[in-house]
Amino acid sequence: MSLAKRIIPCLDVNNRRVVKGINFVDLQDAGDPVEVAKRYNAEGADEITFLDITASSDNRKTILDVVEAVANEVFIPLTVGGGVKKISDIRDILNSGADKVAINTAAIFNPDFVRDAADKVGNQCIVVAIDAKKVDDDRWEIFTHGGREKTGIDAVEWAIKMAECGAGEILLTSMDRDGTKIGFDLELTRKISEAIRLPVIASGGVGNLQHLVEGIKDGKADAVLAASIFHFGTYSINEAKEYMQKAGIQMRL
């Protein structure tokens, strides 16, 4: 027995409610963040990720009181992202009870921010979120503001750069797959996972439990993130972990 692969349910939060949409639009309500987090904790989630999805585009701060309410109820690692622009934002989120902070837009405008953040709070707290879209046969580029804005930056090169800047983990989302339920972009996931020595969380596109297995086995991811298959009760976290264990992946059961 050694390090287990992780399942991370993701709470996309908008207006203090958990929501889920397709390709980051058409949002559907999925409940109260604290209640949803408690349920996942009880079902055996390995971590929880909480993304304040419109904080960056609305130019406002992450809803710290909701983060704190979630952190008071669950004793597993909590990653929070959305609206992170300054070191003080990171400290505020960590002080609200989060264990890791996901940086996305801010890193693109200023890569040194990741370096600075890793120096100040330790690289284990810094998750760099990469939202990528396939633009050509063998090329993916990163997008910001919930997938609405193009940057022209190559996703694999960016992951290598973020690793050099001191990121502790990469949260990789395929914007093409997000909400589609057709499975992860395995090619992209494998490329990035093999290009860096950091743990990579695969995200975007999970529609069934076999997709989670593929993310680990074919995408070489260290953790898999999913939202809608858990939010709407299609599968429980436990069920997903048992399925993955049966497929030969070591899980924490």
């Binding site: 027995m1 050694s2 390090l3 287990a4 692969k5 992780r6 390995d46 690289n123 284990q124 502790g168 983990e169 020595r197 950091l198 743990p199 990579v200 260290d222 953790a223 924490r252």
Partner: peptide, 13 residues
């Protein structure tokens, strides 16, 4: 070995 990710992050026995 090089194929082990660093940090050692997650649940271990």
């Amino acid at each position: 070995k090089k194929d082990f990710k660093i940090p050692h992050m997650g649940w271990n026995n």
